[in-house]
Write a protein that binds this DNA or RNA. Structure first.
Lengths: 203, 203
DNA sequence: GTCTATACTTTGATAGAC
DNA sequence: GTCTATCAAAGTATAGAC
């Protein structure tokens, strides 16, 4: 249960995320945000120290939430092939459902000062490491096609991180379906012929 | 052969593209650009009408160049499978070699007014149509996996358009290699098992 | 926690001489 | 084609009353 103050705080952050994602962080002024919330711009400084501090808090919180879910999922002791599939479905699902904040992460990370940016990047690296490790494990087992590993990692992130530019969760493809399509394309794409298997259906 | 004036013009546009790509269009001022070029900001307005006009000219010219190459390539009468492979290698190669302008296209298209933006988007749609038609042709022939076509199109664009965030042409992977990896991942990923074939090597 | 009022900086753009 | 000088607008942020 959130207190009244926490709800207001959340409302401000959500509105800011939406505005920043829609019009871009740099082109959205504090005045724009205040207007959207129906309050004075000076009042906003009660909730954050500066515009950049606001952006930083949003991104940092976003990374924490995503990381918690991803790392808990990957702590499970699954065969690497299933782990890969789970990671991709899960990752896509998280991000497809959080369009505003993914947009911020992809577009406006560079608006942070080096120190604040590094703090976020350090957390990003943790889930880059997750998928890199999974792929390395598959390579070890001879299941992976002979392709440069970093390129494969970024091919996947490219697919997912580009989604906010075109994808709408309320369109014909649900976030779950999207994750499944990405899984299928990527798994078939990077695994040795025959190593990828269909989903839980069949026999 | 370029005249002296044309060279100066090109120098200004190239410098602007690099600055905008590196620091973002919105956060790069006309003053920044003037300083980078060693001239006064007012002098720049001899070469364009406004900052937005500058951005628009860069993007529009970029699209024209890319389109010319892509459409000429796809006018050739090739089997759809080879056309797909050629498109992907070619598209990746063009964009991997033109990092600054791809970055602008992906990040800053929304900084244009609706009219100017639509002019660029209309050209974008032409090569979206190219790959959509190729995939539709493959589906018709029963070579494509049963997956939603628009998602496949954007999966590919996602891979390529994300490259400026991480890829360096002078790193261990050449633009040609990158195109080849993307081709392989995507073809294996979206084609029915066995439909994708290796490159020109082999018996 | 929200307001009014304001300080200070940077921005895009123009006028007009050379 | 480049310069000096300048403007009006918009930006972030702060001070201090309630």
């Amino acid at each position: 249960m959130l207190t009244k103050g926490e709800r207001r705080n959340q409302e401000i952050f959500d509105t800011a995320a939406h505005l920043f994602a829609t019009r871009g962080y740099a082109r959205t002024s504090i005045r724009d945000l205040a207007e959207a919330l129906g309050m004075q711009k000076s009042s906003l400084y009660h909730y954050f120290d500066s515009k950049e501090d606001l952006l930083h808090r949003m991104l940092d919180q976003f990374m924490d939430q995503a990381l918690e879910r991803i790392e808990s999922l990957c702590g499970q002791d699954l065969p690497p092939l299933e782990k890969l599939a789970e990671f991709m479905r899960f990752y896509t699902h998280i991000y497809a459902g959080d369009r505003d904040r993914l947009m911020l992460l992809v577009n406006d990370l560079d608006c942070l000062t080096p120190q604040r940016r590094m703090q976020v990047v350090a957390k990003q690296r943790r889930y880059v490491a997750v998928i890199r490790d999974i792929l390395a494990e598959l390579k070890e087992a001879g299941l992976l096609a002979d392709l440069p590993l970093p390129v494969l990692v970024f091919a996947f992130f490219g697919m997912v991180h580009y989604t906010p530019k075109w994808y709408r969760p309320d369109g014909p493809v649900s976030p779950e379906e999207l994750g499944e399509v990405f899984r299928q394309v990527f798994c078939h794409g990077v695994l040795q012929n025959g190593a990828s298997k269909p989903g839980p259906e069949g026999a």
